[in-house]
């Protein structure tokens, strides 16, 4: 049986004003790109928590994409700057953990850059194919076990 080629799994967090609208424009313009990423819309890239990135990795993602507004264009003024610094630190941590920092990609995509969204998606999928699968699936045993250690409420 021929081995099926590795198709990386990606979660993409897109801000609604720029990257999400850019992804909309890629659709309206019918610019094709690989279907590996499942997008999740947030108001601002500043809403994206480093914890979500790790949650995605633990849930089987090979890469995580975050799309925000270009510097100076953030609909909420400066959320993208916060995200940039958080992701910078997160990548340092990932490197220490032995996870390739390239598996997290932060890109500025404006509402007019449908073609850019498609292009970076293609690039990211190619990059992840080069890196190969991550296999950081959750191992319940070694995670703090519920209910003794409730981790996240709300």
């Amino acid at each position: 049986m021929p081995e099926t080629p590795f198709e990386p799994k990606i979660v993409a967090f897109l801000c609604r004003w720029c990257a999400g609208a850019g992804a909309d424009l890629a659709g309206t313009s019918r610019i094709a790109y690989p279907a590996n990423a499942v997008p999740i819309r947030v108001n601002c890239s500043g809403r994206v928590e480093p914890e979500w990135v790790m949650e995605a990795f633990r849930s089987g993602a090979d890469g995580v994409f975050i799309g925000g507004c270009h510097p100076g264009d953030c609909h909420y003024v400066s959320g993208n700057y916060k995200t940039r610094r958080r992701i910078y630190l997160l990548k340092k941590l990932l490197a220490e953990m032995g996870i390739e920092p390239e598996r997290v990609r932060l890109e500025w995509v404006s509402a007019t850059e449908g073609a850019k969204y498609a292009r970076v998606m293609k690039e990211f999928v190619a990059e992840l194919k080069r890196l190969g699968p991550l296999h950081l699936e959750r191992e319940e045993k070694t995670m703090p076990a519920s209910p003794v250690l409730p981790r996240v409420g709300s």
């Binding site: 480093p50 914890e51 700057y81 910078y88 996240v152």
Partner: peptide
């Protein structure tokens, strides 16, 4: 409710870090 404390701290520290006026001009210093 903090979740993973390291990731929560990364988020907080990344949010608080400032090297002058926020913007592309400050990226390298940040």
């Amino acid at each position: 409710n903090a979740g993973d404390p390291g990731l929560a701290m990364i988020s907080a520290l990344g949010s608080l870090a400032r090297a002058g006026e926020e913007g592309p001009g400050a990226f390298a210093a940040e």
